[in-house]
Nucleic acid binder design. Structure first.
Lengths: 151, 151
DNA sequence: CATAAGCGATTGACACGTCAATTATTCCTG
DNA sequence: CAGGAATAATTGACGTGTCAATCGCTTATG
């Protein structure tokens, strides 16, 4: 029984490729529309979404909330700060810490971005699939996630 | 009938998020394993895979073959050339053109990467899903792709 | 209370992607 | 065949992501 008995079949490999390439194209298309129509990148949107729920947050908590590494967030916040979307403030109780809060311009940009973004999701994802397929997609995601989270 | 009648429902949005975040995590995990175990990035692998089928190729054809923009390929080939995986040669019949060919080291790295990569795909994708789910994933990808290629 | 350990956050170096501009060559057309 | 349009490929600027190192502050411990 050769070792490659355990490798994917031709069909499984084709399914993998179609699946992974198409989901990547989908993400990129939705993100592109978000950016083109609103000036916010997907990363910007995630940050602003989290801040819109809390309005002010420790940098670490924000990173945990959106599931980013802290250094990634730090770089991203630097770019967002330069563009005037957020600002950082020192934390009185812990001088190492920093608060992140949206600026007025940032909040406005986020508010203006929400509907276009949801619309893109509807048009490119929801409208492409039947209700059964959407349910299947959610189940597939759950199965993959469970498997990924294993040892 | 308010305009947001046409926006995704709570469930649809949750499905979107789970789906897109999980597929991204999956891609990144498979890519990470490829890179850690073989020293080739997913981009390197795509390039070497295409070259393994043709052995020598015009840069443009290579870009078309793997569906990349030419400038992306140009940057990537620069990095791969620096690492000694490929080399570029002038084209006799068209002095604008360039041939790309794998080096011996590149071919060796690719050959050594194939099995580990397929193994990662099996372990993280194939093994996570039932045969019916894999088929459903392929159908979902096809539906999304068709829809993306529309307007 | 000194100091080492730990934590919050940033930084620098580098890989990767996109877009717009550029260079060099070939092709086309009057 | 002259000169501009088209083509092959590269380049530069910049946003994005990861990893490892660093810096300053807090806290626990002897």
């Amino acid at each position: 029984m050769p070792g490659n008995r355990r490798l994917p079949t031709r069909d499984q490999l084709a399914a993998w490729r179609d699946f992974i390439e198409t989901t990547e194209a989908l993400r990129s298309r939705v993100g592109g529309r978000l950016h083109d129509e609103t000036g916010l990148s997907p990363g910007d949107y995630s940050v602003m979404l989290a801040l819109s729920e809390m309005s002010e947050m420790r940098s670490s908590d924000l990173a945990a909330h959106i599931g980013w590494e802290r250094s990634r967030l730090s770089h991203h916040l630097g770019r967002m700060e330069r563009r005037g979307l957020i600002q950082r403030e020192d934390c009185a109780t812990d001088n190492r810490g920093a608060f992140v809060r949206p600026t007025a311009a940032g909040t406005e940009a986020f508010d203006a971005a929400t509907v276009p973004h949801l619309k893109a999701i509807r048009e490119l994802f929801v409208d492409a699939l039947t209700p059964a397929q959407i349910a299947a997609a959610a189940e597939i995601a759950a199965a993959l996630r469970t498997h990924l989270d294993q040892p």
